[in-house]
């Protein structure tokens, strides 16, 4: 692990191994709070911070925690980080904190966080671990935002309502009324809408991946094939 491939870590988090669309982790908050952009953004940022923090901490202690007790130790670190975030949100964005409610403490149980701590941070130095946490968090955040945007748009016909909850009074007029006099499409706001939306996002990603693969294959097919055959027995003379 001497030379760390930062580009790969970034791509993994954002695309190749995106926690939401590939690992399908952290579904609970993903599906529950993406009713609007502001909710998605709030929870996404919180998760991102927890991810970075926990990854850094786990990476720091990785050489001092034995294998058997690593999971409890990680969970404790994550819980501590989450509690810090919760307190911060309570202090600065109280209304959003009220709206997101239980889902902020539930970040502790977000499998993405524990998954990265165990799969990556516990085996890598601090800097790559921090980057991994950041990129994974960012990937998660992006999906949350897309889903939140989709659901808000389809469900209410607006975008960026109530951004002041996160950004203060200056964001009060950020709201976009994309479709006027929209009757509302309740399904999109309700949990089934989240499932449908996520399904569509994953499908879209898979389609893009498939196309990319085909292009790559077309390029690679020129390379000669090499047999790796060996003799199983006997001598050939």
């Amino acid at each position: 692990m001497s030379d760390v491939n930062y580009k790969k870590i970034s791509m993994d988090g954002l695309w190749n191994n995106n926690p939401a669309t590939v690992q399908i982790l952290g579904l609970c908050p993903l599906l529950a709070v993406t009713g609007s952009v502001v909710n998605a953004l709030g929870l996404g940022l919180a998760t991102l911070v927890v991810l970075v923090g926990s990854n850094v901490c786990v990476s720091l202690i990785r050489n001092y925690v034995t294998d058997a007790v690593r999971l409890p130790a990680f969970v404790m670190i994550i819980a501590a980080m989450t509690t810090v975030i919760e307190m911060l949100m309570q202090a600065f964005t109280f209304e959003l904190y009220e709206i997101l409610g239980i889902f902020i403490p539930l970040i502790v149980t977000n499998c993405t966080v524990l998954g990265r701590a165990d799969a990556f941070a516990s085996k890598n130095p601090v800097l790559p671990a921090a980057l991994d946490g950041f990129m994974m968090g960012l990937g998660f955040l992006v999906i949350l935002l897309i889903l939140g945007g989709m659901r808000e748009l389809v469900g209410q016909g607006t975008l960026f309502t109530n951004m002041q909850l996160l950004f203060g009074p200056m964001a009060a007029n950020w709201q976009l009324n994309v479709i006027d006099n929209y009757g509302g499409f309740l399904l999109a706001i309700l949990p089934p809408g989240a499932f449908l939306g996520l399904g569509l996002i994953i499908a879209g990603k898979n389609v893009i991946d498939k196309r990319l693969k085909e292009i790559q294959k077309a390029k690679a097919s020129d390379e000669p094939k090499v047999s790796r055959r060996v003799r199983t027995t006997g001598k050939v003379s």
């Binding site: 009757g183 509302g184 499409f185 309740l186 399904l187 999109a188 309700l190 089934p192």
Partner: peptide, 8 residues
């Protein structure tokens, strides 16, 4: 059901 939920 979709309609019933969305447009009660």
């Amino acid at each position: 059901v979709l309609l019933l939920i969305s447009f009660p």
